[in-house]
């Protein structure tokens, strides 16, 4: 599937994260799909932390959430990056 990885499963309390290389002028695009309403600020905080840990330039990150806790989200995001970097190197 080209330069892309998918980790996790969309199941209760879990999520899937897909990381793809994309031409985004050095920015990173994150798309979160979740049925849990009203957690926008928590997602923002988790994603800010994530962005501070990794170089996300020119990456498209897509998330399907099955209602995961912030800790699980962070873990999956890091796992996805680890696999993505392992694959391209």
């Amino acid at each position: 599937m080209g330069k892309a990885v998918l980790v996790g499963v969309v199941t209760s309390g879990n999520l899937e994260v897909m990381v793809e290389r994309a031409d985004l002028n050095g920015t990173c695009q994150v798309e979160v799909s979740t049925s849990a309403q009203g957690f926008g600020s928590i997602w923002q905080a988790v994603l800010d932390d994530f962005a501070a840990r990794h170089d996300l330039a020119d990456l498209r990150i897509s998330i399907n959430d099955g209602g995961a806790t912030p800790a699980v989200v962070s873990l999956r995001l890091d796992q996805a990056m680890e696999e993505f970097l392992g694959m391209v190197s």
């Binding site: 599937m1 080209g2 892309a4 998918l6 499963v9 969309v10 899937e16 897909m18 793809e20 799909s33 979740t34 049925s35 897509s62 399907n64 959430d65 099955g66 209602g67």
Partner: peptide, 23 residues
């Protein structure tokens, strides 16, 4: 893989119902 997750062929029905999809 054939038609892998980057193709984003998700369920239109789940989307209509506001349910989480899988890529």
């Amino acid at each position: 893989e054939l038609l892998g997750p980057t193709e984003r062929l998700t369920s239109p029905h789940l989307e209509l119902l506001g349910q989480p999809c899988a890529f």
